[in-house]
Each structure stands twice: as C-alpha cells, then as structure tokens.
Amino acid sequence: MVNLHINGEVKAVDAANDTPLLWALRDVLGLTGTKFGCGIAQCGACTVHLDGKPIRSCVVPIGSIGERAITTIEAIGATPPGRRIQQAWLDLEVIQCGYCQSGQIMSAAALLANKPDPDDAAIDAAMAGNICRCGTYVRIRAAIRKAARSA
C-alpha cells in the first residue's frame, strides 16, 4: 500500500512500489484522463506534474514519489496556467482525436507556469517530448502563445 498526494487528496494505492504511476492512476484509482501511449517515456501521453514539474508517469514508480504533489489533467484546470491553456486549446480548436492532448496540456501548463512568455525555442524544448499523431502541432504552438498573452 502506497499513499499518494493526488490533486490535493491523499489516496491509498494497493499496488507494489515498482508500479508506474500511470497504471496506479488509471487502473487502480480510475483517473483515466492520463493516457498510455508508449510505456517508455517516448511520447508524453502520460505526462502529469510532480511538484509542478512535468514527468512521464509511465516510468515513475509510485514507491519513488513520497509526499510530493501529483497533479493530473483532471485537476489542472484549477491552476491559472492550466485554465488558460485549456481555454486556448478550445478557442483555437487544437484538438483532433484528443488522445495525446492530456499530456500536451500538462506539458504546456508546466511550461507557462515556469516561463510566462515562451518563445518558439522554449516551446520546442518543452513540447518536443509529446507526440501528436493527428498532427495538431501548428495549433499547439499558436495556443501556447495565445494562452501566454491572455495572462
């Protein structure tokens, strides 16, 4: 049993310490907004925040997290950068199939929290780990800029 601090609540997870956070969130706690894409930190679909920093939850064992705060897509709208990113995503209709977008939004929200007015290089650096097979990248870039301006 591992206690995790998720979206402001403490959740007891009945799984081994080496269980990646992704599967604890999805299969044990039913927080299915965080997505499985590759399992090896190559696609970013599983991105969540650990103390505000983006991590790939498919490779982070729950036993390594301790009391650090986990934020998932279900709660990112409660943060000002997260809310602005979500709104910009809708305003510019970024999304197509949407499967990667939880991860995209988590990476983008972390970027804005850390760098309120990112340039193209900063956007590339923060977002290049998130694959979108539908090819929504052009709009992701525009939406991050829009969200930054709306601060």
Binding site: T32, T72, G77, Q86, L90, I95, G98, S102
Partner: peptide, 8 residues
C-alpha cells in the same frame, strides 16, 4: 467533442 478532451 473537444470540451471533454481538455480535462480528461
């Protein structure tokens, strides 16, 4: 379909 795709 997109509003539900920004919040999981």
């Amino acid at each position: 379909d997109t509003p539900e795709k920004v919040n999981g």
